[in-house]
């Protein structure tokens, strides 16, 4: 009986100290992936900051000198600002795929396949707590990283969105940047974890979680309520020309005709995209659907785990 009473105190301590140890263990196990993620976030942020600063100089000069026609004239060159502008968006999409693959393979299935998950479950950590840590730790880093990237990207949009060639490009970028940019990789994580638990072998889990996230990606591109489905409304832009006296006039349509510009006494142009009233309803609806799907995937993952092991 004395052993039983002695046991009561440490049991209480377990509850408070074990989660921190579990988080440290999860961090240590996946430090490679963590460094890659941090490098990706740092590199992409650096690229965005370059686009926000020195990278925009040439295009800005063209806009100020010749107006929107100056941007059109530069259209098509390889280092054109208007195409560099979309690269971070592509990188974030690729990263979401990578997150789904990581979650399905190394995070879950490899552990189940090699038996190290079972090793963790026979320490003082229940499978449910193990899965919670496996979801929460990457999710925290994903949210922090993508929030930072989205915020800088939005900043870049409001600073230099005016340097983009009008068309579907700026429209879809404008409507895609926001809370949904953060929610999509979270869905990738949850789907990968679910696939990893269901398949339990590394290679099939890698393939299947990639495929599952591809379905989400394709569905987002083609179906309501996601941005690919609806005709994104034209973004209204406002172009203005300024005379040497500082007066604001309509763009005289001179293109790079210097004589014409001199005749109208135009010394500077500006251009900006006006905010769309459609932005928040679309963003919030899409984010809501993505988060709901994430919650469903997480619930299924826990149900699957509980059915398999004594999750206690």
């Amino acid at each position: 009986m004395s052993t039983a009473t002695l046991r009561e105190t440490p049991a209480a301590a377990t509850v408070t100290t074990a989660p921190r140890g579990l988080v440290r263990t999860v961090l240590r196990l996946h430090r490679g992936a963590l460094w890659i993620w941090l490098a990706f976030v740092a590199g992409t942020t650096g690229f965005l900051l370059w686009l926000l600063g020195p990278g925009a100089h040439t295009a800005q000069r063209a806009l100020a000198t010749y107006g929107y026609s100056g941007l059109i004239r530069a259209n098509g060159s390889a280092d054109e600002y208007s195409s560099l502008f979309y690269y971070p968006d592509t990188l974030i999409t690729l990263a979401s795929f990578a997150i789904a693959l990581f979650a399905g393979g190394p995070l879950i299935a490899r552990e189940l396949e090699s038996g190290t998950a079972q090793l963790a479950w026979t320490q003082s950590v229940s499978p449910a707590r193990w899965l919670t840590a496996k979801l929460a730790v990457p999710a925290a880093f994903i949210v922090l990283g993508t929030c930072l990237l989205t915020a800088v990207y939005r900043q870049l949009w409001s600073a230099h969105g005016n340097l983009l060639i009008a068309g579907i490009g700026p429209r879809s970028l404008y409507f895609s940047l926001g809370p949904a940019t953060v929610a999509a990789p979270l869905l990738g994580l949850a789907l990968g974890v679910l696939v990893g638990l269901a398949v339990r072998r590394t290679l099939p889990a890698l393939a299947l979680s990639g495929f599952a996230y591809f379905l989400v990606y394709a569905f987002r591109g083609n179906h309501w309520p996601f941005q690919g489905r609806y005709q994104q409304p034209e973004l209204y832009s406002r172009s203005r020309a300024f005379t040497s006296a500082g007066a604001e006039i309509r763009d005289p349509g001179c293109y790079d005709d210097k004589a014409c510009l001199a005749k109208h006494d135009v010394v500077r142009f500006t251009r900006e995209y006006l905010p769309s009233s459609d932005y928040w309803p679309r963003q919030l609806l899409e984010t809501g659907v993505l988060l709901a799907l994430t919650a469903v995937a997480v619930a299924l993952a826990f149900a699957l785990l509980r059915r398999r092991a004594a999750a206690g």
Binding site: A13, T14, T17, G21, A120, Q123, S124
Partner: peptide, 10 residues
Amino acid sequence: RMGAELNPAR
């Protein structure tokens, strides 16, 4: 160390 962190009470 993992053993220590996952079994803090024992």
